[in-house]
């Protein structure tokens, strides 16, 4: 009937590969917009992944599982907040600590779940719509988190650029001293932004262990947290571009998987390197234009705020 039959499954897998990146990157984008750099995304995704998997296995409820993942990510983010916002620890070092801790903690919590199966997150199925060739399964056959990820990007974009609260958050990220002197609680706003980032990273992790590969394995994020951080630079801190970037990376991941499955003469390890090499290349290309980065990056990112009392 059509020559595009092979295309639909490819697009569907690209979507599942991109969705965890969308969640993690859009959450971290809000954190960074408030002037905080949390390098612990990888760790927060991992605890989210294991929390979701454990909850889904034990309770059978996927809604609870997703909430558990968000909570687990937020708890780790809270630790980060206490250290960097209240105790004024270095954000880079603390973010690294969060990732190292998250890797260990998730491995410990997940040891009883390794190799256990779980049913993949259910996909939408609307009679008459999902059956439409090609566009049916793509538009009307996704799991709820995919739709949520698009809504989330739109909401974050609206929040940051169309609401007063978003303006305040950006002000805190661009000039914490000025925002403080007008009377905004810099630390309070940053705590909220950090917690939001943690919860979204947790859901990104949940997507990996419930939908992308419905299982738990140690370190199953395989660097996606770091790729999400790179995506934000790629997107020059713009929500819409984060979405495009995530789908680009999802595409590269799936392309190399399909190339491996097709039995190309290229060794599988070389193909597996592609997403990481692509991240490096993209970072280099984007960062080259230093003034563009400086124009869009939150001016206070990574800087410690201590109000002169």
């Amino acid at each position: 009937m059509s020559g595009f039959d092979w295309l639909v499954p490819v697009i569907l897998t690209v979507i599942t590969a991109a969705t965890p990146l969308v969640f993690a990157a859009i959450g971290e984008l809000v954190t960074e917009k408030s002037g905080v750099l949390n390098l612990g995304v990888e760790g927060m995704m991992l605890v989210g992944a294991v929390a979701a998997f454990a909850t889904a296995t034990v309770t059978g409820s996927y809604i609870l599982a997703i909430f558990a993942a968000a909570a687990a990510g937020a708890v780790l983010a809270l630790l980060f907040g206490i250290l960097t916002l209240s105790l004024m620890a270095n954000q880079v070092a603390t973010g690294l600590a969060l990732t190292l801790f998250g890797v260990g903690l998730s491995a410990l919590a997940g040891q009883d779940f390794v190799g256990e199966p779980v049913k993949a997150l259910a996909k939408l199925n609307i009679e008459g719509l999902t059956d439409i060739p090609v566009i049916g399964p793509i538009l009307f056959g996704q799991d709820p988190l995919v739709y949520l990820s698009f809504v989330l990007v739109a909401l974050v974009s609206w929040f940051l650029y169309k609401t007063k609260a978003g303006l305040v958050l950006r002000a805190v990220g661009d000039s914490h001293d000025a925002a403080h002197s007008i009377g905004y609680s810099v630390i309070g706003i940053r705590y909220l932004a950090v917690l939001f980032g943690g919860a979204m990273s947790g859901i990104g992790g949940a997507y990996l262990s419930l939908a992308y590969t419905p299982m738990w394995a140690e370190n199953m994020t395989a660097g996606r947290g770091w790729i999400a951080l790179a995506l934000i630079v790629f997107a020059t801190w713009k929500p819409g571009l984060v979405l495009i970037g995530a789908y680009m990376f999802g595409g590269i991941t799936i392309l190399q998987l399909h190339a491996q499955a097709a039995g190309l003469a290229i060794p599988s390890q070389v193909l597996s390197m592609l997403p990481y090499l692509a991240t490096v290349i993209v970072l280099v290309l984007i960062s080259k234009d230093e003034s563009r980065i400086r124009k869009h990056a939150p001016a206070c990112i990574g800087k410690i705020f201590h109000p002169a009392a």
Binding site: T94, L100, F101, G104, A107, L108
Partner: peptide, 12 residues
Amino acid sequence: AVTGVFQGMVLF
């Protein structure tokens, strides 16, 4: 995995 948790806690 306890080793990893332990090491992470030290840095925290």
